[in-house]
Design a protein around this nucleic acid. Structure first.
Length: 199
DNA sequence: CGTCGGATTTACT
DNA sequence: GTAAATCCGACGA
């Protein structure tokens, strides 16, 4: 077991520590390979930039909880809330490797994508975990021995190499290097996949 | 109220 | 390369 992650720290401090961590919901376990930090009221790209609202209020709540939002009417993306209660912050789960529950994931995602693509992209991560808006505000259990918690997070057991760069899919404050990922990991959003859409 | 845009994904031309 | 899918909250009237 790695050291417990302190979610009361700012999102950009927590984010790299989440790489290699495993989030589990029921039968599905995802090893996080790509995340993005959103810095609350200090970050124009954050939903919390303009202060608390019905949508983003969870990010102002206690850390180590789940902030789920609806994207483009179709997708449900999940953040891990950071910073002390009263201060907003969150880490968006952008990609992961399915470690367990592939059968359940396949049932949710279909047969189309190859294994590496099952949890590539925030919407797909949400689909793998079966996220819904009902899960917004759910607590994240950091204790490995807790009895069947809804959501559990296991810190990485080894040190994980990571890099950082620009976030994806935003226009405001896009230059900030707040995207973190494990270089070379096949589950991470490929620059090639993105490059076509950019130009 | 009504309108608008998005921390996206996928499939088709 | 472009478009469709499709919903919820933010925001202005």
């Amino acid at each position: 077991m790695g050291a417990m992650i302190d979610f009361s720290q700012p999102a950009d401090v927590v984010a790299p520590q989440l790489l290699g961590a495993v989030i589990r919901r029921g039968p599905v376990a995802l090893r996080l390979t790509e995340v993005e930090a959103y810095l609350g009221t200090a970050d124009p790209a954050s939903h919390a930039y303009k202060g608390p609202s019905p949508r983003c209020r969870t990010m102002f709540g206690p850390p180590a909880h789940l902030y789920v939002y609806a994207s483009y009417g179709i997708h449900r993306a999940g953040n891990l809330v950071c910073s002390p209660e009263g201060t907003a912050g969150g880490v968006l789960m952008r990609a992961g490797e399915v470690m367990d529950g592939v059968d359940v994931v396949r049932a949710r995602r279909g047969e189309r994508p190859e294994d590496a693509g099952l949890a590539r992209g925030p919407g797909n991560v949400g689909a793998c975990l079966g996220l819904s808006l009902e899960d917004d505000g759910a607590a994240l259990s950091l204790a490995p021995d807790a009895r069947s918690p809804e959501f559990a997070l296991h810190a990485p057991t080894h040190r994980v190499e990571w890099v950082r760069g620009r976030r994806i899919g935003i226009t405001k404050n896009a230059e900030a290097p707040l995207r973190f990922w494990i270089p070379g990991d096949p589950t991470v959003t490929s620059p090639r996949t993105r490059r076509t859409a950019v130009s």
